[in-house]
Amino acid sequence: MRVNITVNGILYQREIPCDTMLLDFVRQCGFMSVKRGCDTGNCGLCTVWVEDVPVLSCSYPAARADGKRVTTLEGVQEEAESLGRCMARQGAEQCGYCSPGFIMAVLAMARELDNPTDEEIAHYLEGNLCRCTGYASQMRAIRAWMKERRGEGEP
């Protein structure tokens, strides 16, 4: 089938098999930040936004995204840069494989929640698994980043 999907501001008009998932579609478009970590929708690695809403691209049919606007980490590099830096300062990326999905979830959270508490942050990000870090460094990074955004931290 033919789809028109705008990924990171670029319109991709492609002929695709009907069972293509959005994950494979965006990778075929060259957006390699989007990773597959499981087959069951449990890990959050493949998180992208469809019309600014974070979803699991591994379980989102590309066909359903026809006519819609999809955002991957490649499309929010500027917004993500300071968060990435805060993560690096903590060593919170470790192997880095879950980082893109995690960052997309954190950025979505920042748009959705106002000054979230630690508990709210942890709950919002529950669906992003990480096997390397034990999550504590990610939490430190988020706190530092939010402080920075409020103009309280070091740039």
Binding site: V55, L56, S59, A105, E126, G127, N128
Partner: peptide, 12 residues
């Protein structure tokens, strides 16, 4: 429903 997998999952 708030413990079901994660926000991205529940968005779908």
């Amino acid at each position: 429903v708030s413990s079901i997998v994660g926000v991205q999952f529940r968005n779908m």
